[in-house]
Structure formats: structure tokens, C-alpha cells
Design a protein around this nucleic acid. Structure first.
Lengths: 222, 222
DNA sequence: TATTTATTTGAACGTTCATTTAATTTAAGC
DNA sequence: GCTTAAATTAAATGAACGTTCAAATAAATA
């Protein structure tokens, strides 16, 4: 467990306003919630487990957020939406040439994950599931800002011939996400699986860009 | 909902052994469980919700499976493991040339998903999560049979120069899974997102193989 | 036909969940 | 220093959970 346990272990915290240290509880609680969401999934996370991780009682969560639903809403508004807006900006700055655009996307995702390690696991998990907690958000808000933008630009590139003819621009967006988000989400697994301690994020990034650039390469009969 | 509701709707089923129709309850219950697992996640699925979907009481689940844990174990043993073994066979039959091997993998996954539509969503969801219900299974049993086999063969190919030099064979396995399983898991989403009713599974397969074959293609300055 | 065995429910148990309320402690403002 | 406001917990609520068990009903066997 990465999260530090509640500071001292002395007597079990009594009621009452705390001694002025330990400000920004709200942010701490959000952090704890995200950690639980990422490891157990949103639906399977109880307020109790979040509270335990943060070293408080479940009642405090409702003091700050009102309810479980509102806690999720706060998480989305304060920790998801801003990052997506940022990602969109970097795409807009990358222009319309496919290799540059795709590179910007892959690098952009890597950049996000660098700062928010929980991002890919949570994202993959809560979007792909039929009743995932972030699914509606993706389709209604994120997708227009990022995926549609990408697809539109790639469609233009294909018409100009700067994108291979047998690729579907819309499917390429999906492939891109699968090619970046998935390996990052699965990182702990393939590290263990392949004893791949020698591979760092930069190597993963290079590998991904190389695959996108040229495919498998080598000679082949097919 | 795909699962047919309990046949008749008359009076609310009393106790007692049923009238000889409606055999293989066990399989029906497993189907219902899988449907719930796929849409809500394993941890968030209650026995009650499975029972409701199958039109029985929660007690019956425990009659057939003993407990929630054993139900999960039965699901894995009876519905996951056999398919993996099958997939492994098709890889062994594909030989060692990278393009053929990779093609066999991609086609193999598509074949599995054709028969078991719940496969990708469940897989992605329960493996990527830190405490996912299938994670240990993957690392300890599936991975050696499929992923390690792939990685080993690809490593050999790279040494013989039939695989691009700047690809990492182990990471390529991860890329492959991301490139096939992820788009299939996300199918309902990108269909809606891009109004992509014109794209069928065969088109997705062609697109994926094309991307693997040549990358983005087109002309580029980079 | 009589008896045993298999399958199913209803009802109950103790646990955990999200949420509310009252009490408690400290900080902040006057 | 007094009063008010903010932050926190303990305790309580009712709903949902997994599980167990006796009773009920039909099938299978003798």
C-alpha cells in the first residue's frame, strides 16, 4: 500500500475539530477515493474503505461530499475533466499531419499517466464496462473533445493521402487508445509476467511509436 | 437484455422440484452470472442480481455452487480455461513467422469473441484492475500458455531479423492484446460514438491487420 | 403404490452498506 | 474571554448482502 497510514497510532481519534494542521482534507479524501476506485472499481468501493484509507470515519465523507454519488461527481469534475481539456489542447497544437497528431496523442497520454498513475486503470475499467461509472461521461463529453477531433483530422488526412488507404480513421482512434492506454494500464502485469524491469516508460513510448510508424516490419511472405 | 425471462409469468413460483422441463439449470445460472459479471464487474455483482436475471432465488445459486467464491471458480474452470487452451493450440499451429503468428493471434481473439461476446469486456475489466477477479489467473496460468509463448517466438524472430529491430518482442505482445481485445471490448462505445454502423467485425479485423502490417503509412516528415 | 432422492423456495441469521443525527472538540471572530 | 462556526466522531437507522436451513414439491426408484 502506497498511501501513508494515519499519522500517529496513539488513541483512536475522538470527535471534534482537528488541531489546525492537516488542512485540505477534501483533497486527501478525493485521493483516497481515487486509490480505492483504481484498485477495486468504482461500484465495488465502499465509503468505509475510502474512509479507512484516509484515516477518518465514513460520516466525514458525507460531510464533505454529501453522498456517494456526489463524491463520484466531484471526482469527475475535479480530477477528470481538467485533464481531458489539457489533452485536447495538445492535440489542437499538433496540427493535422497524421504522424504528428498521433505522436502528440501517444505522448499526451504518457504525460497524463506520468502525473496521474491511476488514470489508465480507472479509465479502462470504468469505461469499457456496460455499466461503468465513467462510460456516459466518455460518450457525452470526453469523446467530442478528443476522439471526434482526432477522427475528423485523420479523415481529412486520409483524403489527402497522408494516411494509409486501408486504415479506417475512426477505427484508428480506437486502435490508438488501445495501443497506449491499455499497455499503461497493464504495466504492473507485464512487468511481472515478462520480468521486464529493464523496460521503462520511455522504451514503451518508443516501441509504440515505432509500431505505429512501420508496423511489424521485417520480411514476410504474406 | 438478451437473457430470456423465466418462461411463464403466472403465480410466483413455489418451492419444490420443478416439472421436468427446464433442465441444465447450472449452465443457465452460469450464463446469468457471466452476464452480470460483464455488465457490473465481478466484485459489484450480487448473488441476488444473478438470481433475478435467471428467475430464481439466491438460495438456488448456493445449492448449485456452494458460495460466491466457488461460483467464480466454476466460471473460470468451465468457461475461461477451455477457451484459452483452444487459443493456445491455434498459436502453436501458426508456426514461428511473426506475421503469421500475429495474424493467428488476432484472428484467434476475434474467433473467441464471436462465440463469447462477453469475453473482452470481462477480461479487460477483471485483469487490469489491481484487485481484479481474474488477475491472478492470468499471471499464473494463462500468461505462460499464451503470452509467454508469443513472446518467446517473437524474440526468436527478432534475432533472425524477421521482426523490426526497434520493436520489443515482449511489449509487442502487450501491444497486440491492446490492439485486439480493447477495440472489441469498446465496440458498443465506438459504434455509438462515431455512428459506425457501417463497420463490421471483418472490417475491424482488416483494419487491425493492416495497421500491424505497415503502421500508419502515407508520407511523413518525421 | 410407497419410499427415497433431487430441486426449489421462504424465512431467518449476522454482516456490511450508505446515510442521518446528536454530541464533541477546536478555530475564528468579536 | 465569549460566542459562534467548522470539523469530526459515535451511534443509530433501514436496506441489501451472503449464507444456512427447514419445508415443500416433483422425479426416480423400488
Amino acid at each position: 500500500m502506497a498511501t501513508p497510514k494515519p499519522r500517529k497510532r496513539r488513541e483512536p481519534r475522538r470527535p471534534g475539530r482537528p488541531r489546525a494542521d492537516e488542512a485540505n482534507q477534501r483533497e486527501r479524501l478525493l485521493d483516497a477515493a481515487i486509490a480505492c476506485f483504481a484498485s477495486d472499481g468504482v461500484a465495488a468501493t465502499s465509503q468505509r474503505s475510502i474512509a479507512v484509507k484516509a484515516g477518518v470515519t465514513p460520516a466525514l465523507l458525507n460531510y464533505y461530499f454529501g453522498s456517494k454519488d456526489k463524491l463520484l461527481a466531484a471526482f469527475i469534475a475535479e480530477r477528470i475533466t481538467p485533464v481531458v481539456a489539457e489533452l485536447r489542447e495538445s492535440l489542437l497544437a499538433a496540427g493535422t499531419e497524421p504522424h504528428a497528431l498521433v505522436g502528440a496523442f501517444v505522448r499526451g497520454i504518457h504525460g497524463v499517466v506520468e502525473r496521474y498513475p491511476w488514470w489508465p486503470a480507472l479509465w479502462v475499467r470504468e469505461v469499457l464496462a456496460e455499466r461503468g461509472a465513467l462510460r456516459d461521461l466518455l460518450v457525452q463529453q470526453i469523446s467530442p473533445q478528443v476522439a471526434q477531433l482526432l477522427a475528423k483530422t485523420l479523415t481529412g488526412a486520409k483524403q489527402r493521402g497522408t494516411l494509409a488507404a486501408d486504415l479506417d480513421p475512426r477505427l484508428l482512434v480506437v486502435s490508438l487508445i488501445g495501443l497506449t492506454l491499455f499497455p499503461l494500464a497493464a504495466e504492473p502485469i507485464w512487468r511481472r509476467m515478462f520480468n521486464a524491469d529493464d523496460v521503462d516508460r520511455a522504451a514503451l513510448l518508443r516501441h509504440t511509436l515505432a509500431l505505429l510508424d512501420q508496423g511489424l516490419g521485417g520480411s514476410h511472405a504474406n
